[in-house]
Amino acid sequence: MLFVRSLLFNIAFYANLILWLILLLPGLLVPRRTFIRFAQAWAHSSLWLLRVLAGTRIEVRGREKIPAGGALVAAKHQSLWETFALVTLFDDPTFILKRELMWIPFFGWYLWKAGCVPVNRKAGSSALMQMTARAKEEAQHGRQIIIFPEGTRRPPGAPPAYKYGVAHLYHNLGFPCIPVALNSGLYWPRRQFIRRPGTIRVEILDSIAPGLSREEFFKLAQERIEESSDRLLAEGQRELGMSDSAQKAAVSASKV
């Protein structure tokens, strides 16, 4: 049954994505804020499919902690899930992402329309400066700048591998940072076909006010995100009935 439900969801998810990629073409002509609402509607439709077909629900804790206006959002990254689900939690979100994604037909056009912030990872320090300037401009327009501090998906339970770019952004933006913890990798494992039924839990943590040094912020943000994510991981393991050995096996499988 798990295989069948996962198969049905994956077929429906990508069919729905293709449909929205076509339907959104006229959206390139509307104001950006309107386009963001269209993108959020697609994300909601994907979450609905996940709940109905795979039996995977969502629980968001701390939604009231999201401040109004511009902010930096530093989120744990375990799965493809948060690349679209987090869009539904914020009023005017955008992502820090690698530049190559902007070159993909249709998908890249929409990233451009949404005002995403591209990063040329091969450009070194100049790329960091360009990214920071663009992110600051977007934040000053009241947007929430979403970044995955580890840069790539990490299996749940894997040692953290935070990059220092998030501290550079925090120091230069002058906006609060919203840490976000989650356990999505248990239910939507990276590089795996299976979608497990249960409850993906997301926790919005207390914002970190601007003004800390880079080092203080870097340590504090990592501690908050990791402590909360570990707690959510334990909750998910109990829900799924996974032993420590089973979880270690799942982590190893997702590294392949």
Rank of each mutant, 00 (worst) to 15 (best):
Leu29Ala: 14
Pro189Glu: 04
Gly157Gln: 06
Arg190Cys: 03
Phe148Ile: 06
Glu100Val: 06
Ile18Phe: 15
Leu29Ser: 08
Lys136Arg: 15
Leu23Ile: 12
Trp81Tyr: 15
Thr94Ala: 12
Val87Trp: 08
Ile204Gln: 05
Ala114Leu: 14
Val52Leu: 09
Thr56Ala: 13
Pro26Leu: 03
Tyr14Trp: 14
Gln130Val: 06
Ala71Ile: 02
Gly151Asp: 04
Glu82Val: 05
Asn183Val: 08
Arg238Val: 02
Val117Ala: 01
Arg61Pro: 05
Leu212Glu: 08
Pro67Val: 13
Lys163Leu: 13
Asn172Arg: 15
Glu64Thr: 00
Arg121Cys: 11
Pro155Glu: 11
Ala75Met: 10
Pro189Asn: 10
Asn120Cys: 00
Tyr187His: 07
Val52Trp: 12
Arg32Asp: 09
Leu186Arg: 10
Arg99Pro: 01
Phe95Ile: 04
Glu137Met: 11
Leu21Thr: 03
Gly198Asn: 03
Ala75Lys: 03
Asn16Gly: 00
Ala250Asn: 04
Val180Leu: 12
Ala209Met: 05
Pro31Glu: 06
Val202Gly: 06
Phe148Met: 03
Glu239Gln: 15
Glu203Gly: 04
Ala114Tyr: 02
Phe84Gln: 06
Met129Asn: 06
Val119Ala: 04
Asp92Leu: 14
Ala15Gly: 10
Ile194Phe: 10
Ala246Asp: 13
Gly142Glu: 10
Ile36Glu: 00
Glu226Met: 05
Gly198Met: 04
Leu17Asn: 03
Val251Met: 14
Lys76Thr: 09
Ala123Glu: 12
Arg37Ser: 11
Val166Ile: 14
Leu220Arg: 14
Phe95Ala: 00
Leu8Arg: 12
Leu240Arg: 13
Met131Thr: 08
Gly62Ala: 02
Ala250Pro: 00
Trp42Thr: 09
Arg214Leu: 08
Ala167Cys: 08
Leu21Gly: 14
Ile22Trp: 08
Arg37Phe: 07
Phe35Thr: 01
Pro160Cys: 03
His141Met: 13
Ile18Pro: 03
Ile36Leu: 15
Thr34Ile: 12
Asp244Ser: 11
Leu25Thr: 14
Gly174Met: 10
Glu100Asn: 08
Gly165His: 07
Leu212Met: 14
Lys248Phe: 04
Ile145Lys: 01
Met131Phe: 04
Glu100Pro: 03
Ala127Val: 07
Val202Gln: 00
Ile147Cys: 11
